[in-house]
Design a protein around this nucleic acid. Sequence first.
DNA 1: TAATCGTGGGA
DNA 2: TTCCCAAGATT
Length: 353
Amino acid sequence: MRALPADFAPRLIHWQARDGRHGLPWQGTRDPYRVWLSEIMLQQTQVSTVLAYYPRFLERFPDVAALAAAPIDEVMALWSGLGYYSRARNLHRCAQAVVADHAGRFPTTAAGLETLPGIGASTAAAIAAFCFGERVSIVDGNVKRVLARLLAFDGDVGQAAGQRALWDLAQGLLPPQPSNEDMRAYTQGLMDLGATVCTRTRPRCEVCPARGLCLAFEREAIARYPVKTRRVQRRFERWWLLFAVRGDAVWLQRRPERGIWAGLHSPPVFAGEDDMRAAVPAGWPSHWNATEPVAHALTHRELQLLPHWVAVSEAPAGWAGEWVKRSALASVGLPAPVRSLLGGAWATQVLDQ
DNA sequence: TAATCGTGGGA
DNA sequence: TTCCCAAGATT
C-alpha cells in the first residue's frame, strides 16, 4: 500500500476552519460533560435527531452531579424516543462513577475515559481530542468511509479485523505534533468531511480538500468503498399489546432489564392472542377493541404491533406494573411506537371518557 | 467473533 | 417498498 499522505491532516484542518460545521450546540465548549453527553447521544444517531434532545437534557441535568443524583426513570424519560436505551442506562452509571470514583471530574485521557460505562474507544478519543487535545483518532462511520476511500482500503469495515486495521491507519494520519486547537479541528474535520462531502451516496468530490490524495478517486472507484459485506437480516415478530385503561390512566409495566426496550415502560406484551386472553383476570370485559396494526422496524427485528384496548374499573389482579395518568406520560420512558399509540386518536377517545 | 440494541431519514 | 445507515458499545 502507498505511504500515508502526510498532507492529509493540514489540508483537513484548513478545510475545517473554512468549510466545516461550527454552529452545533455541542461545539464551542471544552466542558467534558457537554461533549460527553453529545457524543453518547450521537452514537448511531443523526445530528438532526439529537438537536431536539440535547438542549432539553442539558436543561434538566446541567452538570454531571445533577445527572448522577437523578432517578434512572427520569433519565429514561428524557431519552425516550432516542433509541438504543442502554446508552441512557450507561450514561447514568457513568455519571455516578465520575462522581463516586473521580471526584466529579471526567478523566482527562482517552485511556481513562474508556474505563467508564458506555464510553468505547471512539467516544473516548472524541472527548479526549475535543476537550484535552489528545492525539488520538476517532473511528466512527464517517472516518471509516473517508479513510476507506482515501486509501482504497479493501478490508471489510464491518468486521472487527478491518476496523482495527483502519484504526491503525487513522492513527498514522494524525497531524504529527498538533496543538489542542489542531486536534479539535482535525477531529471535527473528519466528521464534517464524512457528513457533508464524502457522503455515502453521491459524494461531492469536486469540493473535497483531499481529492488530490484520494486513491479511490484516482482509480474512479469511489462507489466501491467502504467495503461492507455483512448485511442485516430482520426477523419478523407479532407483538400483542394490551392497553388497559381506567379513567384517564393506562396500565404500564417496566420492561425487563435485557432485550428490546429494556428499562422502558410499556403495556403488557404477548406473543399471541391466546396468551393475551389467558392473562386477563376474570371479571374483565370479554371484549376489547383492536386498532390498526403498526409496523415497527428495529435493527434486527420487524415488529408488527397489534394494539388492543380495554376499559376497566379495577387494577388487574396479579399483574406487575402501575396506573399512569395521561398527564404523567411525558415523565415516563416509553418506546416511540407506544408513545405514538398513546397519543393517537383511539387513546385520546378512551382516556377521555 | 458475532449478535444485539431504536429510530428516523434518504435514495 | 426496501434497504442502508447515522459522532458505537457491550456481551
